[in-house]
Nucleic acid binder design. Structure first.
Lengths: 146, 146
DNA sequence: ATGGGTGCAAACTGTTTGCAATCTG
DNA sequence: CAGATTGCAAACAGTTTGCACCCAT
């Protein structure tokens, strides 16, 4: 059950004056097909598209990811790695947060509605419309600290 | 009232088998002197040191920042910009969180003890020792959405 | 005096950009 | 058909690394 049908994406793009292209559709499709909690880097995504036989350039992947983050369709994650990861921006109640070990990079995901609600409140009181709310916890896991 | 006296830094380094060097001292000093909520990039820090007449290389700045994040003395922030920022990792109660406009980059800081407590609990129950806890809110500010 | 730390310059990685060609509306 | 979007290759920024020298322990 995809969040964005072809038409929904088309409408979202058109409503802001952007054009619906095959590349944008394919990128969103891949990210929609990802299981909850999976996230890809721009290069992962590009490699996947290549594997599927699509002809699409890395620059277009970057441009599309930026556009979709800007539109609020995607979340951009900064985890332990040195590059960004992207995933579909599902409704707030499904948001998960990240706990990262700064030494080994192990990442644990968890959900916590209260955080999302607090974030929502803070943003609203500052006059912001929320696109994404991420609690990042950095620490040392038990394996690394022993 | 600095968090880390010269001796405290020296002790922290020695206890983990690292050496106390003038460069490490100077970098920590600059970050300690920063007002609450200010944060610098590696290059900002390097430029500041140069201005003060210090002779220190950019690589050493990077190496030192990494070491101190790893040790838990500093926080590494990923804001709207395309490079990392660093600030002193003060005790949890002083932690602040960030609200960023994805369109204009305006950043608002706020504090919320409850978030820190939730984070602490989540981390502990996963067996992690917390170094840092940041709520990142991405959205669109009222000026950009109008 | 030993080996951790530094400075320099060169390499690297992920990302961005200019431009001509190609599509969408 | 006009202008948005793409692909390519080249540029870029921030960061990392190899190595010889230096200095803390």
């Amino acid at each position: 059950m995809p969040f964005y049908s072809e038409d929904a994406l088309k409408a979202a793009l058109h409503s802001r004056g952007y054009r619906a292209t095959a590349q944008r559709q394919k990128i969103l499709n891949i990210l929609q097909a990802l299981p909850q909690g999976e996230h890809l880097s721009a290069e992962d995504l590009h490699a996947l598209l290549k594997d599927q036989g699509e002809r699409i350039s890395l620059s277009t992947v970057y441009r599309t990811l930026h556009l979709m983050v800007y539109m609020g369709l995607l979340r951009e994650l900064e985890l332990a790695e040195d590059h960004k990861h992207y995933e579909l921006n599902r409704p707030l109640r499904d948001h998960h947060h990240h706990l990262v070990c700064v030494q080994c990079g192990q990442t644990i995901e968890f959900t916590e509605d209260l955080i999302d609600r607090i974030g929502e409140n803070q943003a609203h009181s500052a006059g912001y419309y929320v696109l994404d709310c991420q609690l990042m916890l950095y620490g040392v896991c038990d394996r690394c600290s022993s």
